[in-house]
Design a protein around this nucleic acid. Sequence first.
DNA 1: CTTATTACCAAGTAAATTAGTAGGAAATGT
DNA 2: ACATTTCCTACTAATTTACTTGGTAATAAG
Lengths: 155, 155
Amino acid sequence: MRLSTKGRYAVTAMLDLALNGADGPVTLAEISENQGISLSYLEQLFASLRAKELVRGVRGPGGGYYLGRNADDISIANIICAVDEWVEFTRCGGRKNCSGGERCLTHSLWDDLSSEIFDFLTKISLGDLIRRGEHKKADKAAHLSVVDDEGSRAA
Amino acid sequence: MRLSTKGRYAVTAMLDLALNGADGPVTLAEISENQGISLSYLEQLFASLRAKELVRGVRGPGGGYYLGRNADDISIANIICAVDEWVEFTRCGGRKNCSGGERCLTHSLWDDLSSEIFDFLTKISLGDLIRRGEHKKADKAAHLSVVDDEGSRAA
DNA sequence: CTTATTACCAAGTAAATTAGTAGGAAATGT
DNA sequence: ACATTTCCTACTAATTTACTTGGTAATAAG
């Protein structure tokens, strides 16, 4: 698993799409405007997303992008994998010191952790995120005294 | 949060340290050999780790590195944060379209997710990982017919 | 059927990050 | 004294990120 700014851009853009795509397709120009990402970079990202069928493009005036499937059926891992295509890394391919088995333990441990992070992100869908956002909004509307302390440890 | 190859190197090196550091300090030369990371790059990584007191260096012959504290008190997030120092990103600083509040929702959602990933990695310590590895090893020793299918979806 | 709008495509580039080199100085055990 | 090792700085090659430019293809609307 790999979590870079590129993946972050992709997730953010997909969120934008999920939030604003209810009534008609969303143009990359809009997303570019909303999220402050250059149009051409978005085009690149969406080429990858489209290849994995996470989005569907409609050309011509009034066109734009739809989600490729239901927001509940698109996981964060799906999105990140689409744009970030990770390197295979250290199945200890040919590395001399790993033959003994003992030395390979740390690599194995990293792989395990890595899978776990992957599973974690697989279980979170775009739909989940949006519903959480709605709850939060509702909470705020209910009692306005909520302290907005998020971002103090943004990650 | 940010999960790059740099963080991966750091975690792997720390695992190596935790596994082999029981009887005396471990030299960077050894880790370099074991993990296939250049010595100087390790030096850079360990400078960051030392700054956060995750490791403790001992100079001179027979020297090397110890963990800065107990393996159970070092989380994966600790390690990654030490070397990867993420960019603050999009507290929508000055971004024009975010003032309305509505537009900012996607950023807020990303921040939430990001915090969640951070929390997840905070709850996993070096000690946890190692104990899991030991269990696995024990399982394998017990019944050797275990299929090694990890890595098929390395992440 | 022309035109504006949009996705789609490809090549190139600037900036940032990653990973490694080189050449040391400062401790410290033998 | 000497070898070993951390520690430190500066430089560089390679890779990735983000953007730029300049298009082509589809299509809705006039």
